[in-house]
Write a protein that binds this DNA or RNA. Structure first.
Lengths: 234, 234
DNA sequence: GTCTATAACGAGATAGAC
DNA sequence: GTCTATCTCGTTATAGAC
């Protein structure tokens, strides 16, 4: 009996995955705006109404894709972090740039999925609560790098403008106990700016402007890393 | 006869404007995804197919709105630049932050139009040639501020990483003859990062993260301005 | 109970005839 | 400019199959 239920559950999982895979393919082909339940069903040899057993609506399917996309960038970033070289005094900066590059590489390889999570909110846009966990994965990884660097060799955090003292304290408390307030502000700022660089490239704003984009990005990412104090001041 | 043609042309211009106005209203209300030709036509008391005399397709209407949006940010930025206080020695930095604030204010006031131009490319994403002029307006304004600052008091441009020398020379030539190569790179980088900050705020990535967003942005914008050398090194 | 198929409703984009 | 026709879409109700 449990075997039967297990089989059913397995089938359900497989079909759910197949739907998401096909949806992802259409996403890559035509973008989120043109993602159509009917087309997905057609390609899978089902009838459109059957999909509603798996996703209550088109927006729910999109939400699932959003969560998967956040997890995919997060996984790419974490893998880069884990396999980065760790030799001597630039170790933290090396890890930082490795993560930045991984995020950018993923974004360029999956532009439509990237647009789904870091572009304009697509549907009627009510980001469900389920997305906040996966969404913060990459950001928290960047935080952990900075925290490790700070623990290792108390680098001097950047100066903190007076109006931000309260905000900095709140942020630092939320991001981790052993994080200097000024650093927390710098981190969030670097985080947003990093994705600004990637978004401009993925969304075509650099067309006819920046040509050697690898070098441009690497240099910018490293500068961001320096700004959050990943290198000891000489 | 020319009078008749003139009248026709005038009517055409007026109706085109009316269509765009109504489309903009719907855009502001519901976002680009829900912009519907039929609803626009209904509101204007026409029949939907009549719109095709003015815009060959829904995407063409969107393209027109995109161009208008670029022009609107550009105008807001230029106005802020023109009316910013110019009292010594922080004049250039003051102008820079004024422009940044104006762009952010416009974005927060018109989130859906902002999403149209700085979010995910909506249709099949082939940015028509018509958009590149208006699109560069804001960027060129930032360039002009940096150029003025550099002319005034040859500030030291930031260090230029070796792999970027070629790119920097090309960029500087494109952006203006009297611009140090290293500065051109810093400018493009600051430009992308500025919009990264704004996009994260407009698209909700700062929800439950940054609270005092005015102070956060002002401080970040000023730091960006410093990075492109708008203050003489003390 | 859980899935799938049929059929239908309402809304939309677009093309062509008038 | 309008009217009409065609096609696609999201979604739901309903009825039958495992």
């Amino acid at each position: 009996m449990t075997a039967v239920q297990g089989a059913r559950a397995r089938a359900r999982i497989e079909i759910t995955a197949a739907i998401k895979d096909e949806a992802r393919r259409q996403l890559a082909a035509d973008g989120a705006a043109k993602l159509s339940l009917r087309a997905v069903a057609r390609e899978l040899g089902m009838v459109s109404s059957a999909l509603y057993r798996y996703f209550p609506s088109r927006d729910d399917l999109l939400t699932a894709l959003i969560i998967d996309a956040y997890d995919a960038v997060g996984a790419a970033a974490e893998k880069a972090h884990a396999t980065a070289e760790t030799d001597a005094p630039r170790a933290h900066l090396t890890r930082w740039t490795a993560v930045c590059r991984a995020v950018r590489a993923w974004a360029l390889a999956h532009p439509h999925e990237y647009a789904l999570i870091y572009g304009s909110p697509v549907p009627g846009y009510t980001a469900p609560q389920d997305t906040v966990g996966p969404a913060s994965r990459t950001g928290l990884l960047l935080v952990s790098i900075a925290r490790a660097a700070y623990r290792d060799k108390g680098v001097a955090p950047p100066p903190l403008p007076a109006p931000l003292t309260g905000e900095a304290a709140r942020l630092a408390a939320a991001l981790g106990p052993d994080l200097p307030p000024a650093l927390s502000i710098a981190l969030v700022s670097a985080w947003a700016q990093l994705f600004g660089l990637i978004s401009f490239e993925v969304f075509g704003q650099f067309n006819r402007v920046v040509e050697d984009r690898d070098a441009f990005f690497d240099s910018a990412a490293e500068r961001l890393g320096r700004e959050v104090g990943l290198l000891p001041k000489p």
